[in-house]
Design a protein around this nucleic acid. Structure first.
Length: 346
DNA sequence: AATGGACCTTGTGC
DNA sequence: AGCACAAGGTCCA
C-alpha cells in the first residue's frame, strides 16, 4: 500500500483529470447537496437569493485546526497564490516526510514543536514570509511551550460531528464560539478575522463569520454597513457585521458568508457577470473596435455575453432591438474554457 | 476605546 | 519593461 493511512482517511495521489468533485457532484448522479440551507437563507435574505444560485456546491471544509491556524496567519494582507506557496514551504522544510511518489517527496504539515526552533523566524524571513515569519514562530512557541497538550483542539465545537470528540477539563470555561474566538486572539498574528477562519474551518463553529476585505465590501454595499457615522472598521464594527449575519443566517452563518464571499471574488466573477449564455435568436452583430458591438435583432443563434448588465438584468425576456454590449466574437459551440490569469508564458 | 500607519512580498493590470 | 496597487489583516503608537 502506498500512502500512510491516517485515522481512516487517505490522501489520493490524483490530478483533477482523475477526480473532479465539482463535476462529479453535478453530473446527475446525486441530487441533494446543499440545497435546504440555501433555500432557508434565500427566504430570509433577498441578497443571498440573488447571488447564491450561481454558486451552488460551496461547502465549508473541516480542516485541521493547527494547520488552518498557521495557514490563515499566512493569509493576512496576502494573496491566495503566495499563501499556497508559503504553506508548501512550511511542509517541505519543517514537515515530516510521508513518502515518495515517483521521485517526488510528500511532506505532511509540520507540528508546533517543529516550528518552535530558534532559527525558524529568520529562516522563514529568508524564505519570503515577510513579517508573518515572526507571527508563525511566536504562535508555534506559545502553543508548544505555554499551552497544555491538546489546548487548541479543546476549543472545538463539541456538537459538531465533523470533528472528533475532544476532552475538556471541567475546571475551565466550557467551549463556546465566543470563548474559542477570544482565546485565539491571544496568539500572535491572530486578529478577529483569522480567529474566525480557525473557528469556522478548524474548530467546527458554524456561526463564525470571517469578516475580511471582501465581506466588509459586501456588508457595505449590500447590507448598508458603514453608511452612518462609524465608518471605520473597528473591532466593534467587526463584531457588529458578524452579529448581523448571524441574525439573518443563523447558526451556519459562516457557510452562507462563504457563498457570498466566493460570489464576490474577482477570480470567480466569470460565473456571475461574464459567461452568461443567452439565447439571441435573430440577433445581428456589428463589430465596432475589438469587443464593442451593436446587437440588432436578426441572425445570431447564441452568443456568449462577456459583459452586458442591461441584457443580464432583463433575464431571458427579450433583447432590445439595438444594444451596445460586449460579446465574444464566436458562437458558444466549440468555445474552449476561458483561462483566467494566464500570465505563465513559459 | 478608537484611529492611523507601517508592514514583507508577490501577483496583477496598465 | 516597469511601476503602482491590491492581496481573505495585525500590531503598535
Amino acid at each position: 500500500m502506498s500512502p500512510v493511512n491516517l485515522s481512516g482517511w487517505r490522501k489520493l495521489p490524483l490530478s483533477l483529470a482523475d477526480l473532479c468533485i465539482e463535476t462529479t457532484l453535478r453530473c446527475g448522479q446525486s441530487f441533494r447537496w446543499l440545497t435546504a440551507l440555501y433555500n432557508q437563507w434565500s427566504e430570509s435574505d433577498s441578497n443571498f437569493r440573488e447571488k447564491a444560485p450561481k454558486f451552488t456546491g460551496i461547502r465549508i471544509l473541516s480542516q485541521d485546526a493547527w494547520e488552518a491556524l498557521i495557514a490563515f496567519i499566512c493569509s493576512s494582507n496576502n494573496n491566495i497564490s503566495r499563501i499556497s506557496q508559503m504553506v508548501h514551504k512550511l511542509c517541505i522544510y519543517y514537515g515530516p516526510l510521508i513518502g515518495h511518489i515517483g521521485d517526488e517527496a510528500f511532506h505532511d504539515f509540520p507540528t508546533p514543536q517543529a516550528l518552535s526552533g530558534k532559527k525558524v523566524e529568520s529562516h522563514l524571513r529568508e524564505l519570503g514570509f515577510g513579517y508573518r515569519a515572526k507571527y508563525i514562530a511566536e504562535t508555534a512557541r506559545i502553543i508548544s511551550a505555554e499551552k497544555p497538550e491538546g489546548w487548541l483542539e479543546s476549543l472545538t465545537n463539541p456538537e459538531n460531528p465533523s470533528w472528533p470528540v475532544t476532552e475538556t477539563s471541567s475546571d475551565k470555561e466550557p467551549p463556546s464560539y465566543k470563548y474559542a474566538h477570544e482565546q485565539l486572539l491571544l496568539l500572535t498574528g491572530v486578529g478577529p478575522k483569522v480567529a474566525d477562519c480557525v473557528c469556522l474551518m478548524g474548530l467546527g463553529w458554524g456561526e463564525a463569520v470571517p469578516v475580511d476585505t471582501h465581506v466588509w465590501q459586501i456588508a457595505q454595499r449590500d447590507y448598508k454597513f458603514g453608511k452612518s457615522k462609524t465608518k471605520t472598521f473597528s473591532k466593534a464594527m467587526y463584531d457588529s457585521v458578524g452579529d448581523h449575519f448571524r441574525k439573518i443566517w443563523g447558526d451556519q452563518a459562516g457557510w452562507a458568508q462563504s457563498v457570498l464571499f466566493t460570489a464576490n471574488l474577482k477570480s470567480f466573477s466569470g460565473q456571475a457577470s461574464g459567461k452568461t449564455e443567452v439565447e439571441a435568436k435573430g440577433v445581428k452583430v456589428e463589430i465596432e473596435g475589438t469587443k464593442e458591438v451593436k446587437v440588432e435583432v436578426e441572425e445570431f443563434e447564441k452568443a456568449t455575453i462577456v459583459s452586458a448588465p442591461a441584457i443580464r438584468s432583463r433575464k431571458r425576456t427579450r433583447v432590445a432591438a439595438v444594444e451596445t454590449i460586449k460579446v465574444e466574437t464566436r458562437t458558444t459551440e466549440n468555445v474552449p474554457p476561458t483561462r483566467r490569469s494566464k500570465r505563465t508564458k513559459v
